[in-house]
Design a protein around this nucleic acid. Structure first.
Length: 741
RNA sequence: GGGCGGCUAGCUCAGUUGGUUAGAGCGUCACAUUGACAUUGUGAAGGUCACAGGUUCGAUUCCUGUGUCGCCCACCA
């Protein structure tokens, strides 16, 4: 007789099952049966940051991708799911810097670059190990033999190669421009790393001096000592007579020379309709200054402190200088008015610090420069054709070679490209890919390897983390070498990231892959939403509302967590995390377990010689109504689940299979089978149909709940009821014709 | 300022080209049940599908507008 526990205990089996999968070698596509004839199917795992531990968002992401990969593997594809981690310089470096300050009271400069970077690497390694274990515990069937890291040797070679090639094509240049300076993080950041925060502010209206003819308005009087012009609208009748004139003034002890200019970008109706132009400390003003050839005058330094003025102002923070100037304006009776307004202040996404626009010499990717595409496999673009990076990015999606789901994000993508400015890629951080450029006097040398000879010094800056991430789909496959992996698995099949990194990552991958390889990086992008807490808030450290996925898996089982994550979660929509749902799915796993217990018990009760042919389907004319119904419903469920999975409607697939297993098979057919089993005329058929339904259900459920299904499968295998050793590589049931496995 | 999304049962959400009584999970209520499973079963209550127009034989679904919550982009200095 069977001795199966009454309840399924995930804890008891999960680790061993994952080990069996790993030991089988089937996570590696090369080891799959008939690997040579299989069609490749590839997913690159969006690499989690090595800054700590995985959160619910990662658990969600791992689940979704594993479902797709397991489904495709069972369909007979040569499935590669390539894992890795991201070195995430800003986050990782600041985390280690904080720990250093807290534990040892030291700053990173106390250690020096080399020692500090070693510390960060050590931290990253520990964090990496934690993350890898968490990915494992989610049941992710990734190919660990191909694991990559955005900051390992191979990826570093990829980064240097890409930089060098783009430099040679003029796609990367060094320029002195106003950039987003993060005073707190002491580094430049790109436009995409800005977050606008609305704050109350004061709008001051004043003039530079008593003999200056025009009032201007600003929220930042302290920057006005750096003004080199006042801009008005060309059609503004009030100021026509002043256009072209130049004035000198002594503004709070600082001499300013201001030219009145006319520019279309000025709003007549805002403030006085006249704009003080500060070319060094405003992105917009810098653009105006460029159009009019105005000089740039820097008055604030990297620490957000004043670099001009007398003792009262020099070296003061901008906020202090502001008060000093306002006080001076009041004394001089130059202040016309002071209004309370709401203002959007740009801050750094990572550090939260206020951005101080500053002119700096930095490296940029030129997105508008025309260049001949050296090699193209992109439909609609010939090898050697003149393109721009912007054009490559938009063409890949416009032409339908890459589809983005949900579709509405395609519009957002195009809009982003239209407004895209050159991408600042240099960062003043120590942990990261150092820019492969060397200087000696006025000489500049860019190559993959350092120049020979003495006296060369490498650029101290490192590259934006997204520069290396942008190469991810192909750097992980061995690029710049022309490896077999690269030929086999690139372009990848589908990319499944969160919608919040559409610009940061997805767009940049398209940029790099098309420009470097002349290939799209992936055929489909399926964006998922964010996991939020029960009140709809983001999970964050400051709110301390995090839920550890590992707590959930140990409490309810990994299968339950996985099923709960996709059940009712439509693509691209945020997901409210609810522990009750996980609990419910634990019940479902147990339900499946008990269905299996029942089926196994009735089949094995009388069977003497267990013959796998028991699985073959019975004759039509002997079927009862209940038999016919469940068989028809199974066919329908199989069809629906397959179609939903093919089209990435995982939530629908999950719902369909859940409903079939619980409410059709268990609630209806199992009950109907009881009397049928007691009747000699129908008993045999009933057993066959029960077993057939169980086997099909296990297959349909496996991508969602791999552990419990694999465990039950092993029980069937032990009794010779199925042929394949592992359900993981068993053949996906094709809806028609109804086949015996 | 521009764009997008949500608004469906008490709660969290599905609803795949417009089509008979609009679904699920959890929750609630009643009843049942010691032989797969109480981590159960049967049944019930509960929705003017935000609102107003329009198209249509027919609209939760398509169009227009309004309200409301949220997100993205721009940055008016």
């Amino acid at each position: 007789m069977l001795e199966l526990q009454k309840a399924y205990d995930p804890q008891q089996h999960e680790e061993g099952i994952y080990k069996r999968w790993e030991d089988s070698g089937f996570f590696n596509p090369d080891n799959l049966p008939d690997a040579k004839t299989r069609e490749p199917f590839t997913i690159s795992l969006p690499p989690p940051n090595v800054t700590g531990t995985l959160h619910m968002g990662h658990a969600f992401e791992d689940t979704v991708q594993d479902i797709v990969i397991r489904f495709q593997r069972m369909l007979g594809k040569k499935t590669l799911w390539l894992p890795g981690t991201d070195h995430a310089p800003i986050a990782t470096e600041s985390k280690v810097a904080k720990m250093l300050e807290k534990d040892e009271g030291k700053r990173k400069s106390d250690l020096g670059r080399e020692e500090f970077v070693n510390r960060v690497k050590k931290f990253a390694q520990e964090s990496h190990d934690t993350i890898v274990n968490q990915v494992r515990s989610m049941g992710a069937s990734v190919d660990w033999s191909r694991e990559a890291y955005t900051f390992d040797e191979k990826r570093n070679l990829g980064v240097r190669t890409a930089f060098k090639r783009m430099y040679d094509q003029g796609l990367i240049y060094r320029g002195f421009k106003v950039v987003n300076w993060d005073v707190k993080g002491q580094t430049v950041i790109s436009d995409d790393e800005l977050v606008y925060v609305e704050r109350p502010a004061k709008l001051y209206t004043f003039r530079y001096s008593t003999d200056f003819p025009i009032n201007i308005s600003t929220t930042r009087p302290e920057t006005k000592v750096g003004d080199t012009a006042v801009a008005v609208h060309p059609d503004d009748a009030r100021y026509q007579k002043y256009i072209g004139q130049e004035y000198d003034a002594e503004f709070c002890g600082v001499p300013v020379h201001v030219k009145i200019i006319a520019d279309q970008s000025v709003e007549k109706d805002f403030g006085t309709g006249a704009l003080g132009v500060t070319p060094a400390h405003s992105m917009i003003d810098a653009e105006i200054a460029e159009r009019h050839g105005l000089p740039m005058k820097q008055v604030i330094n990297e620490f957000g402190k004043m670099t001009v003025g007398d003792d009262t102002m020099m070296g003061k923070k901008t906020t202090e200088a502001r008060e000093i100037i306002v006080e001076w304006l009041k004394e001089q009776k130059l202040l016309e008015k002071e209004e309370d307004i709401k203002q959007n202040v740009s801050t750094a996404e990572r550090t939260g610090g206020v951005i101080e626009p500053l002119p700096k010499l930095q490296w940029f990717v030129n997105v508008n420069k025309e260049f001949p595409l050296a090699h193209s496999e992109i439909a609609g673009i010939k090898t050697g054709e003149m393109v721009t990076l912007k054009k490559l990015m938009s063409h890949a999606v416009e032409s339908g070679q890459i589809t983005i789901q949900p579709e509405r994000f395609e519009k957002i993508y195009f809009h982003w490209i239209e407004n895209l400015r050159d991408w600042c890629v240099s960062r003043q951080l120590w942990f990261g890919h150092q820019i492969p450029v060397w200087y000696k006097g006025k000489e500049i040398f860019c190559d993959i390897n350092p120049p020979s000879g003495d006296g060369w010094e490498q650029d101290p800056d490192t590259l934006d983390t997204w520069f290396s991430s942008a190469l991810w789909t192909f750097s992980t496959l061995g690029w710049p070498e022309s490896t077999k992996d690269l030929q086999t698995f690139h372009p990848t099949s589908v990319m499944i990231p969160g919608y919040e990194i559409l610009f940061f990552w997805v767009a940049r991958m398209i940029l790099m892959s098309t420009a470097m390889l002349g290939q799209i990086p992936f055929k489909q992008v399926v964006l998922h939403g964010m996991v939020r807490d029960s009140q709809g808030r983001k999970f964050s450290k400051s709110l301390n509302n995090g839920v550890d996925p590992l707590d959930m898996t140990s409490k309810y089982g990994t299968d339950a967590l996985r099923m709960a994550m996709v059940f009712g979660a439509a693509p691209g929509n945020d997901l409210i995390f609810d522990e009750q749902k996980v609990k419910g799915m634990k019940h479902f796993a147990n339900k499946l377990w008990n269905i299996s217990r029942f089926v196994l018990t009735v089949i094995l009760r009388e069977a003497k010689n267990l013959d796998p042919s028991v699985v073959s389907l019975p004759q039509d004319d002997k079927l009862t109504e209940a038999d016919k119904t469940i068989l028809a419903e199974l066919v329908q469920a199989t069809k629906d689940v397959t179609k939903h999975l093919e089209e990435f409607r995982l939530h629908e697939a999950a719902q369909t299979v859940y409903d079939f297993v619980w409410h059709k098979l268990a609630d209806v057919y199992l009950e109907a089978s009881k009397p049928q089993l007691l009747n000699e005329a129908t008993a045999d058929n009933t057993k066959k149909i029960l077993l057939h339904n169980l086997i099909m259900s296990l297959k349909l459920l496996h991508p969602f709940m791999p552990f419990v299904t694999e465990h039950i499968w092993s029980l069937l295998k032990e009794r010779g009821l199925v042929t394949e050793e592992l359900l993981m590589v068993a053949k996906w049931p094709l809806p028609l014709p109804l086949s015996s496995p």
